[in-house]
Each structure stands twice: as C-alpha cells, then as structure tokens.
C-alpha cells in the first residue's frame, strides 16, 4: 500500500523538499568521505616533508593541489586529516552532550515536582557559568588527551539539550496518548520506550545536527589557542592558527582550512534547520 506513510517517511520526503538541506547533506557526505579515505588515496602523506617544495603555493602540476606549508607538508592531506580529527572530536563531544542532556532533561521532565526543580536549578546555575573558561582551566590542569578534550567540549553543550528535552518531555507527558497508554495497562518502561522516546527522537536528531557545528567551533577555538588538539596531530583549528601566523608569506595555508571549517559549519547548520522543519510539522509554513 503506497498510501501508508509513517511520520518518519513523511519527514524524509519533507527533508528532500528542502533544497538547501539536501545540498548541505550532499556536501557533508562528500567532505566526510574525503576526510576518511582522501589521505589514503593521496600520493602524499601528512608527516612527510617535501624538501623541494617548502611553502609552495597551490599548483595542480606539482601534485600539491592546496600547496604546502613551511616544512613542505602537503596541505590538502593535512587539511583532510585535520577535518577528520575535528569531525571525530565534534561528533564524540556532541554524543556526550546529547546523552547527558537527554537523560537529564527526560528524567527531570518526566519526574516533575521537586526532582525536576532541583535538577533544573542545577542547570540554571551551570548556565550562568562561563563553561569555556572552565574548559581552559581543565586543559591547563590535566593532560591534554583527546578524551579530556571530548569530555570538556561535550560539557559545554549539554545544558541546552537538557532544557530542550525537558520541555519537550513535559509537553509529551501531558499529551493524552501517554495517559491513554497508562490506562491501557502499559508499564512505565513501556511508556517511556514505546511512546516517549520515539517522539523525542526527532528533537534529539535535530539537536545533534545543530550541536556538531557548535562543537567544531569550540574545538577549533581551543586548538587555535594551542590548548586543544596537540601536535603532531592537528585539527582545523591548529591549521588555521598556523595559516594565520604565515599570513603574509603563504596565505593559502589559511584559506584552505578556513574554507573547510566554514563550509562544515554552514552545511551542518542548514541541515539542522532543514531537519527541524522536516521533523516538526508544526513549523512548516
């Protein structure tokens, strides 16, 4: 039967109508694929110095399509690897934010009453705190491992998720179908997993997409300052910092990584907006 269309199927078709979101999705997929397999396909390697090509501008013939840096490392490969690291950290941090925020918000929203007010009061207090500066403090105090970085960056994002999920949970919990399910004899776990979670999923997916660019920006910010990803690994933030330092001599060192970063952030934001419109029929115009 072709006319059976679940809300998910409808959402997908609505997303496909959103041309900016589709284009973003295509660009993002291409960038992710390039970041994952690109360095492997390239004749150059990120750590190998090309002594004949130090600080060379972009040139198709030499094989260094985006030029080389001061040490003769191929910038295309370095940018792709930087993108991979930035994406990895951002996605991992977004997952940390989402899991923490969703659990916190859902528990607070579904419990209500005093538990809710205590939990959300905590979020309010943390919201007033300058999380980014705490991240700087943490990276000062502890070893700068990628795991700490992920945890720190993830901590900057979960508060908003918790608030959104809580209000969504409260709105859902007051809908009659939740009550109807209880009246049908469903157990609390059944209510949560059969009714609450599937209806929250749209919000959470949308937020994940909007969180990733935020996480990319925070990671790049820290790496730009030198307290994020540590050498020899480098993320887009490190590359931009290097490029900014060599601005007058080798501007291509800045332009490539910066363009990648901006493109990533733009595409994730457009995709997130598209998802939000697609998953929430009320927002459709």
């Amino acid at each position: 039967m072709t006319r059976d269309r679940s809300l998910w199927a409808e959402s997908v078709s609505r997303l496909l109508d959103h041309s900016a979101a589709v284009a973003s999705l295509a660009i993002l997929s291409a960038m992710v694929v390039a970041a994952v397999i690109g360095p492997w396909l390239s004749p150059h390697q990120a750590e190998v110095l090309d002594w004949s090509m130090m600080g060379a501008p972009p040139d198709l013939l030499s094989g260094h399509w985006m030029g080389t840096d001061r040490l003769g490392r191929d910038l295309l490969v370095r940018t792709l690897e930087g993108m991979r690291i930035s994406l990895l950290i951002a996605v991992a941090a977004a997952i940390v934010s989402l899991v923490l925020g969703t659990l916190w918000g859902a528990i607070a929203g579904y419990s209500g009453g005093r538990i809710d007010s205590v939990m959300m009061r905590g979020v309010d207090v943390l919201f007033a705190m300058p999380t980014l500066f705490f991240v700087i403090l943490l990276t000062t105090l502890f070893s700068r491992s990628p795991l700490l970085l992920i945890a720190c960056i993830g901590l900057t994002g979960w508060l908003t998720v918790a608030r959104v999920v809580r209000s969504e949970t409260m709105a859902l919990a007051s809908r009659e179908f939740i009550e109807a399910s209880v009246a049908c004899g469903a157990r609390p776990a059944g209510v949560v997993f059969r009714h609450l979670v599937p209806n929250l999923a749209g919000t959470v997916v949308t937020y994940a997409t909007l969180l990733i660019p935020q996480m990319i920006l925070v990671e790049s910010f820290l790496s730009f300052l030198g307290i994020g990803v540590q050498e020899p690994a480098s993320s887009l933030g490190n590359l931009i910092a290097e490029g900014a330092a060599e601005l007058d001599a080798a501007p291509w060192m800045l332009v490539g990584p910066a363009a990648c970063l901006v493109l990533l952030v733009f595409c994730f934001n457009y995709l997130g907006d598209g998802l939000r419109d697609a998953l929430d029929p009320r927002r459709r115009r």
């Binding site: 790049s220 910010f221 931009i240 900014a244 910066a258 901006v262 952030v265 733009f266």
Partner: peptide
C-alpha cells in the same frame, strides 16, 4: 557562521 579566529586572519589578509 564565521568565528572570530577565521574572520580575523581573513580581515588581516
């Protein structure tokens, strides 16, 4: 969409 650490170097450039 452009963070300060991208705008800054570009403006300088």
């Amino acid at each position: 969409a452009l963070p300060v650490f991208v705008i800054g170097p570009l403006l300088v450039l």
